[in-house]
Design a binder for these strands. Structure first.
Lengths: 162, 162
DNA sequence: CTTGGAATGTCAACAAGGTTGACATAGTTT
DNA sequence: AAACTATGTCAACCTTGTTGACATTCCAAG
């Protein structure tokens, strides 16, 4: 094996992989830290943030859609959703076509909180992206996509150009 | 602004940042999925995995060190640590120099479980790295490091060459 | 040598957010 | 009419985090 080849494989050593594992752990903590602080003041947790995020992204999504994306049970999601509806952040409307379904929308108050949360989260991400530069960001996204479960990745990359 | 400049800034649009946020969320789920499956069979959770990981990385580390790294309270860590000691996966030895401190080591059984967990986690990461390639991996690591809390990042990058 | 403070352990109570299981209700489909 | 589907709800439980209070052990400074 030439020197070039061995250098190209260096990023696959167990030690490199261990470091990447820890980087992932610490970075995820940073990633959630700012929204967590905001949520704490509202008596909400990460589960509420996730629901708000995906309702914002796909207004009118059904409970079942949300369950699939979030990967939790309906009982768990329902508990979160109920408080959000009670607090007037989420509007749950009976479906027109199929009236068993509930379509979920953020209210104005919900949109306000969503913006506050995503602004905080994006600020850190934007800073990290700017410091690392576009090439690094492209690599970052590539690796993340390959780390997802294949089925999720397929659905994720399918909407790449949307 | 020239075309080149606007293209260089495209990765900082809110939409791009939203996509990166979701990629982070889904990728982290993939990242923990394999160890989680193994842990479920042992009546352990992620907290046990994290403790095992960092004791493996730094044998003889003290409880206080571990608290700082993991970012949890001593009560929370203690509960996890107690079960690991009871189950014979972790050895807690009174310090020689300072006998108030406990130094933590994995037993042979602990090392065996650690290997099982990290093998599973690394397999997915190795696959993702191989598919994305060395350049992408370098970018991935760069961005992750910039997403950490500054203090953590300083300590993290300090041991880069170790 | 005593006293203060540090490191650790432990007990209790609580909360968030997951889980499973069982069941109700409404609505759609066959 | 019957079967299936989507959702909600109740109850019980688990893991993992929290705070607060207190005991123990030991180092170190006076």
């Amino acid at each position: 094996m030439t020197k070039d080849q061995s250098e190209n494989l260096l990023f696959l050593t167990d030690e490199q992989l261990r470091r990447a594992t820890e980087a992932m752990f610490f970075a995820y903590r940073g990633f959630t830290a700012d929204p967590d602080r905001i949520l704490a003041g509202h008596d909400y947790g990460r589960a509420h943030h996730r629901a708000i995020h995906f309702i914002h992204r796909s207004p009118g999504t059904t409970v079942n859609n949300l369950l699939t994306i979030l990967g939790v049970t309906k009982q768990s999601l329902n508990r979160v959703l109920r408080t959000l509806v009670e607090d007037g952040l989420v509007d749950s409307r009976v479906g027109d076509r199929d009236r068993r379904e509930r379509h979920l929308y953020l209210t104005d108050a919900g949109e306000t909180l969503e913006r506050k949360l995503s602004d905080a989260q994006r600020a850190r991400m934007r800073a990290a992206f700017r410091e690392a530069g576009p090439v690094a960001v492209a690599g970052f996204r590539q690796v993340l996509e390959h780390m997802m479960d294949p089925e999720l990745r397929r659905r994720f990359t399918a909407t790449k150009d949307s």
